[in-house]
Nucleic acid binder design. Structure first.
Lengths: 244, 244
DNA sequence: CTAATAGTGTCTGTAAGACAATATTTT
DNA sequence: AAAATATTGTCTTACAGACACTATTAG
């Protein structure tokens, strides 16, 4: 078949169906480590392996809607979760059953209770991103892109507050950055920096009930401010490797 | 139908097919103005309106491959063009014929010859992005996202060099920034800044054959360097509106 | 010659990062 | 009391932006 035939007479319904799924990279911080939500596959292919939660889009359902539904099915979570589109994947052989194009979404949540398993998954659980089991399909790659995106967005958006609770201390916010970036940050400089960025956090006037577990004064409590972008941004400590 | 039925027995082949297309936001700079490649639709729906070039993915074809093919069909361009995934759109009613999920790609090219029309398009042409005709489907929104992405990426990647030719002067590079951002930049400060960012440009040792059209010395010629990220970044002049 | 442009020098304000200091709290 | 932590202060360096200046070329 040559090009003009394709262009003139191409009818998608004449070809094997393409299925569209959404997959969700849901991140949270538990016990000082970054975790991702995974479900254990109950069926072939890749039965027994872990995978990102996801599934087919339904008739009449928009993509973000489908992503929110899939996340809700695993976590019981409805509001409270920041969710955004990540990327799409459509390599012909990425699913051995049929042609599947997957739209991935990235979600950030504060520390959450353990997920409940959906009925199509043998199990669902949070996994530390630095101790991952083998993942099904190309989900390792998708997760990698999600982590990259999350690290980038901490720099120039107030995303870090989505990992913290409703009210938080500057130290808790610093812990988010240290966990996601994997580097220690200077407490004093970080503190001053956060307060100097307009709209990043706003004071609640309250303080913690008690000092830190191992001593120290009570910390002031803040809530997320109204900034959508951080200016100036919080730049990650230099990453020479990533520049070239 | 309740949730457990869906989860247990959902079979995508039992539903009306979903079609997957790629759409390309191809940007170039011509005559000091940012242009996007559009094709005029020959068929319903939206016959006569302009649209982003795109089409159905083919069996066995990966997504970036499909995007490159669609672009090639309109421009005859093969290499030389930077192309990257932009976003995906899948609102149920975005195409009146059937459920179509579209993966959009963003392409940047140096000044190009006029496109040739593909046989499924009445016409294809570069349009100034500030003087657009009415666009079909949700292509105005997709283009908007593409422009946003392009403006952002100029800040922290060497993308601007993709709009310039193989060899270029600092002034030409500045013109790219001024065109895409829509703001005038200070020539002297810009010049020093570009040369101070490691790996952004490298000298060719050559100069232009003659000075500028209206006078001035010959300019040194540079080529793109090996940096993948600009550090420090070239920040856009303050955009208070976009912060909150 | 005049105007325009390439490229460099200088100065100022802002902000990042190193480091120190103080106050408050837990054990 | 000792250790840990919150918060603030000081100093140095890097860098963005304003502005000035010189050299070179077209017309």
């Amino acid at each position: 078949m040559d090009e003009s035939e394709f262009l003139a007479g191409y009818d998608p319904r004449a070809y094997p169906a393409v299925a569209v799924t959404v997959d969700v990279v849901a991140l949270t911080i538990r016990g000082g480590a970054l975790h991702v939500l995974l479900v254990q596959r109950g069926e072939q292919p890749y039965a027994g392996l872990w995978a990102l939660p996801g599934g087919f889009i339904r008739p009449g359902e928009d993509l973000p809607e489908a992503a929110a539904r899939e996340l809700d099915e695993e976590t019981g979570l409805t509001g409270r979760v920041h969710i955004e589109q990540l990327a799409s994947y459509g390599a012909p052989e990425r699913d051995p059953r049929m042609r599947i194009v997957s739209i991935s979404y990235l979600a950030f949540a504060p520390d959450l209770p353990d997920p409940r398993a959906g009925s199509d998954a043998a199990d669902a659980a949070w996994h530390r991103v630095d101790r991952l089991p083998k993942l099904a399909f190309d989900h390792e790659r998708i997760l990698g892109h999600g982590l990259e995106r999350a690290r980038d967005k901490l720099e120039y958006t107030p995303l870090a507050t989505a990992f913290a609770g409703e009210r938080f201390t500057i130290s808790e916010l610093r812990a988010v950055y240290e966990t996601v970036w994997g580097v220690p940050l200077h407490a004093g400089n970080f503190h001053r920096k956060i307060l100097s960025v307009p709209g990043f956090v706003e004071s609640t006037g309250e303080t913690t009930e008690s000092g830190g577990a191992r001593g120290g004064p009570r910390a002031k409590l803040y809530r997320a401010g109204d900034a959508r972008l951080l200016h100036p941004a919080l730049l990650r400590p230099s990453r020479e490797e990533e520049i070239r």
